[in-house]
């Protein structure tokens, strides 16, 4: 049996649970009253959802994590860590960056967080390049079309 790490790695979030496992977590969550369930069972369900494949499930997981963050000040640090991973996974890199930056402010010199921040920033850079590429493409084609019409009018 593997040792239990203190915090999950990014890799952990990409290893989905069995649907039956998620369902048990969900039942536990619901049987304790949904919104009023204990923080641990809410987290269990949320993390189970984040690990799953469906985008909407992952989002629901993030939403639940956000609720935990709002409710329990003692859990905020670790919640930011989970939120970063969750947002990274659903592709909300700007959100992920916001969380990881805040976390690093409170935990300067923490290697694990720094590594995570590096990954997030890396991803954002790539996304921005892609976005810019798309935008330039759009602008270029628009210009081409405009030029075409322009020329035709002449």
């Amino acid at each position: 049996m593997a040792k239990i790490n203190f915090l999950p790695t990014l890799q952990d979030s990409f290893e989905p649970l069995l649907p039956q496992q998620v369902e048990i977590l969900r039942q536990q969550f619901l049987s304790e009253g949904g919104e009023t369930a204990s923080i641990q069972s809410r987290f269990n369900y949320a993390w189970g959802l984040i690990k799953s494949m469906g985008l909407d499930d992952q989002r629901l997981g993030i939403k639940l994590l956000t609720d935990i963050y709002k409710e329990s000040p003692q859990r905020r640090r670790e919640c930011l860590y989970y939120l970063t991973i969750g947002c990274y996974k659903v592709g909300e890199y700007s959100m992920a960056k916001r969380y990881v930056d805040t976390l690093l402010e409170h935990e300067p010199g923490n290697h694990q967080i720094k590594a995570l921040q590096g990954m997030v920033e890396d991803k954002i850079q790539r996304e921005t390049v892609r976005g810019v590429a798309v935008a330039t493409g759009v602008v270029a084609s628009a210009a081409a079309v405009a030029a075409f019409f322009f020329r035709r009018r002449r």
């Binding site: 203190f6 915090l7 003692q74 905020r76």
Partner: peptide, 21 residues
């Protein structure tokens, strides 16, 4: 608004986070 490290939980978390992943 994140509580500073007076609590046992946070202390442990930050220490743990310092250990290598």
């Amino acid at each position: 608004d994140i509580p500073s490290e007076f609590d046992g939980t946070n202390l442990s978390l930050s220490k743990k986070l310092l250990t290598q992943n």
